[in-house]
Design a protein around this nucleic acid. Sequence first.
DNA 1: CTGGGGAAGGGGCCC
DNA 2: GGGGCCCCTTCCCCA
Length: 274
Amino acid sequence: MPRSFLVKKHFNASKKPNYSELDTHTGSLDRRVIISPYLYESYPMPVIPQPEILSSGAYSPITVWTTAVPFHSPLPNGLSPLSGYPSSLGRVSPPPPSDTSSKDHSGSESPISDEEERLQSKLSDPHAIEAEKFQCNLCSKTYSTFSGLAKHKQLHCDAQSRKSFSCKYCDKEYVSLGALKMHIRTHTLPCVCKICGKAFSRPWLLQGHIRTHTGEKPFSCPHCNRAFADRSNLRAHLQTHSDVKKYQCKNCSKTFSRMSLLHKHEESGCCVAH
DNA sequence: CTGGGGAAGGGGCCC
DNA sequence: GGGGCCCCTTCCCCA
């Protein structure tokens, strides 16, 4: 079973190692890998089969998620006026501070946005309130009634903005067709190695695989002249030369050259012991 | 058991 | 929008 189907574990997605120093260590390395013409001459890129993903049944566009605002439902708790429901009637209570579900469209770290401030000023002006219509926050369409806006959001705008593209081979969903196409390649595996027949989802994966046959190792360690076929493997190797390991156990402060080694260490019971 | 190398996959960015 | 590439991550294997 290809690893692509394994569930990805995000132990700490926010902790990203800084590899910026790699360039200084490998200053002589060209950032663009020059693939030997030999590879392309002897092993031309495979013809990608007709993309099944483009067939009409490949995906199901506009899959309305069940989180859409129910028609004629009361305002969901935590739904702010910025969600398209003007608070001119004074019915909308501010979302509870602990509610994190309403952060979907909030890119601002400030608890009070400019739009909220403008709304506050409007609230102080009754004439402005009267002139206010029920406006969709997604497409700016205005409606004279709240129910009209709610129906619009349920049947059109929310469905459009939250449409998903479902893989017909598995239950994964993607927000864009491009992402779905890329994913489906992990099922169809259109790039086949002509030497061993192993199939890959992307051409560059095949190129990397072909290096295992040719022995080409374009990435050299500047410290020990050891060569690698994969840049990421060189990067991991460079950590072995470093006195300061990037991955540290937060309990015992022991450091590791790889995150996977830290994970092993943590799973072995260090964190439990402390 | 630990550390390291090899191989591979997915997401994201750029052109 | 698609391809190429990079980065990060994971798994397997071995010393």
